[in-house]
Computed example of a mutant assay.
Amino acid sequence: MEERLLLSSSFGAAATAYAEHRPDYAQAAVRWALELAPGLRILDLGAGTGKLSATLVALGADVVAVEPDPAMLSELRRALPAVRALPGSAEAIPLPDASVDAVLAGNALHWFDMAVAGPEIARVLAPGGTLAGLWNVMDDRVDWVAGLERVSGSAAIGPRDTLSSWRAATADLLAPSPGLAGFGSPEQTDFPHGQRRTADSLVATLATRAGMLVMADPDRAAALGSIRDFLGSRPETAQGEFTLPMLTGVLRVRRL
């Protein structure tokens, strides 16, 4: 529990870099998560700097964002001034009962204490509403991506960061439990995605991972140096821009 809290609270120190370098979410994945209709009331929970909120706004949703970290919340408000953005957490949501049609979490659901957050999410969801987590994962079926994972280590590319590990690592997050009483069976799928990167910007992206943010400075510098050397050695990534092969994975469950 202490390690989870340490990691989950690390992002504020890198809020500006997070906003600059983290990817958006595949629109097809968001549409599947929601079966989106115009004007749907959606809570972006653990909204960070607003990456998922921006996709939801582009799809015409009525979005309210909730984020516990002040620095991340400040970046969200700067980037999306028209979005209602509130301080709060999955365990204490500052919204009335049955006030949203869906609750989405972008790269955040695994940080929630679902024993507490589950009943809170159920409280704010209208009957028949959807809870969905979305994760951007690297496609390690691609040879150079698999090599990057080996070089980077788990601090930079963790168990929910690649396609081969994502399904197993997330499947139990919405498993039947007292915290999720009143929800149906979870469904899981993924959608193609990608992000234009250079070697330097991909290193900067990986530097925003929680495991990297809590490392001692010399260790982090050494890890990022190894990643940079690997990218410089590969023809796919050594020169100019390239597309980082990704997918947006979705795990959803409906309130009964």
Results as ranks from 00 to 15, higher is better:
residue 8 S to W: 05
residue 13 A to R: 11
residue 14 A to G: 11
residue 20 E to L: 07
residue 29 A to S: 03
residue 38 P to W: 13
residue 45 L to S: 04
residue 46 G to D: 07
residue 46 G to K: 08
residue 47 A to C: 09
residue 51 K to A: 13
residue 56 L to Q: 14
residue 57 V to K: 15
residue 60 G to A: 13
residue 64 V to T: 15
residue 67 E to H: 13
residue 74 S to P: 02
residue 78 R to K: 14
residue 82 A to E: 15
residue 86 L to V: 14
residue 87 P to M: 05
residue 87 P to F: 11
residue 89 S to P: 02
residue 90 A to Q: 04
residue 92 A to E: 08
residue 95 L to W: 09
residue 95 L to M: 12
residue 101 D to K: 00
residue 102 A to R: 09
residue 110 H to G: 14
residue 111 W to F: 09
residue 111 W to I: 03
residue 114 M to W: 10
residue 115 A to T: 14
residue 116 V to S: 12
residue 117 A to K: 04
residue 122 A to I: 04
residue 124 V to Y: 07
residue 124 V to G: 03
residue 126 A to Y: 02
residue 128 G to R: 10
residue 132 A to Q: 06
residue 133 G to T: 03
residue 134 L to W: 02
residue 137 V to Y: 00
residue 141 R to W: 02
residue 142 V to A: 08
residue 145 V to N: 03
residue 153 G to W: 03
residue 156 A to W: 02
residue 156 A to G: 07
residue 163 L to A: 04
residue 166 W to N: 02
residue 167 R to G: 14
residue 170 T to N: 15
residue 176 P to V: 12
residue 180 L to G: 08
residue 180 L to M: 10
residue 183 F to E: 03
residue 187 E to K: 12
residue 190 D to E: 09
residue 191 F to W: 10
residue 193 H to T: 06
residue 194 G to S: 03
residue 194 G to C: 00
residue 195 Q to R: 07
residue 195 Q to P: 00
residue 199 A to V: 08
residue 200 D to K: 00
residue 201 S to E: 01
residue 202 L to D: 09
residue 207 A to V: 12
residue 217 D to A: 15
residue 223 A to P: 02
residue 224 L to N: 06
residue 224 L to D: 05
residue 225 G to H: 07
residue 225 G to A: 12
residue 229 D to M: 01
residue 230 F to R: 00
residue 231 L to F: 08
residue 237 T to A: 00
residue 240 G to W: 01
residue 245 P to A: 11
residue 250 V to C: 12
residue 250 V to G: 13
residue 252 R to C: 10
